[in-house]
């Protein structure tokens, strides 16, 4: 096993806080190689990747926030790279709250690059957009031939009994050759139409890419099968536990295994 963890605190403010996770087959066989890195301005939080386990097939990594997240001016960049035939599982120890930003904003950008036959499973915990927060999130997934991804996303608009902050998020997934698979944008905020989310304050999504959920899957949300393969299951809820899509998430994990 190769494991590298580096930290490079610097003071040049304005840089984003960068997190990198890269796993690949080890040249001589055996456990996969794992490269983990977190780096950012000294006065900003970082998301630190922590290795939980690894074997010859893949690794499990926990993304641990260090410092208060997510505040005005924070710029989080997370880059995930999974080598050919390797499986990466990402977990989060807790949800994230984007707090009031007093007119400023924060960004949260994720790029996932999956080589041939690579797989990623990322069980996202709730992302809460508190009143006064202004957040732009982007997720870009590039799938090589035979690559699969299972992503869970739970967006909560406002803490309990609170109005929503402003959220703009983009998800773009492309297949081999850059062919578009899924491209979705959602803009929601305090002035949004009730009809956008049907009055819900929680948007739960299970996204399977490069793999389609079984036909007989029970519907804990609305199911959307994509033209290029892959399934999105979405639940719009008022209570968090009603939008976690436990059944669909289990099936998505199996589908990409």
């Amino acid at each position: 096993m190769t494991l590298t963890i580096t930290t490079t605190p610097t003071s040049d403010a304005g840089r984003p806080s960068r997190t990198q996770v890269a796993v690949s087959r080890a040249a001589g066989g055996g456990r996969v190689s794992v490269w983990l890195d977190a780096d950012g301005p000294a006065d900003r939080p970082v998301v630190r990747p922590v290795l939980l386990s690894s074997d010859e097939h893949g690794a499990r990594v926990c993304l641990v926030p260090e410092g208060a997240l997510l505040l005005a001016g924070d710029r989080i960049e997370i880059t995930i790279s999974v080598g050919s035939g390797v499986r990466l599982e990402l977990v989060e120890p807790a949800g994230t709250v984007a707090y009031a930003m007093d007119g400023d904003r924060a960004t949260w950008d994720v790029a996932i690059d999956l080589d041939v036959d690579a797989a990623v499973v990322w069980a996202g915990e709730p992302f809460v957009v508190a009143a006064g927060a202004d957040v732009t999130r982007s997720t870009t997934v590039r799938l090589g031939v035979g690559a699969r991804a299972a992503l869970r996303e739970i967006v909560v608009l406002g803490r309990h009994g609170e109005a929503s902050g402003r959220l703009e998020q983009h998800l773009t997934a492309t297949g081999p050759g850059g062919r578009p698979v899924l491209s979705e944008a959602l803009e929601v905020g305090p002035g949004s139409s009730r009809l956008l989310l049907g009055g819900a304050r929680i948007v739960g999504s299970v996204i399977a890419l490069g793999a389609t959920l079984p036909e007989s899957a029970p519907a804990d949300g609305t199911r959307f099968d994509l033209d290029e393969g892959g399934t999105v299951v979405r639940a719009l809820g008022v209570e968090a536990h009603r939008a976690t899509l436990a059944t669909s998430w289990g099936l998505a994990r199996e589908a990409v295994a």
């Binding site: 983009h170 959602l186 956008l196 609305t222 959307f224 719009l236």
Partner: peptide, 14 residues
């Protein structure tokens, strides 16, 4: 643009 409307999409399916 990729602007989605999750509830309208859910209505279309139901």
């Amino acid at each position: 643009p990729a602007a989605g409307a999750p509830q309208i999409e859910a209505w279309a399916e139901s």
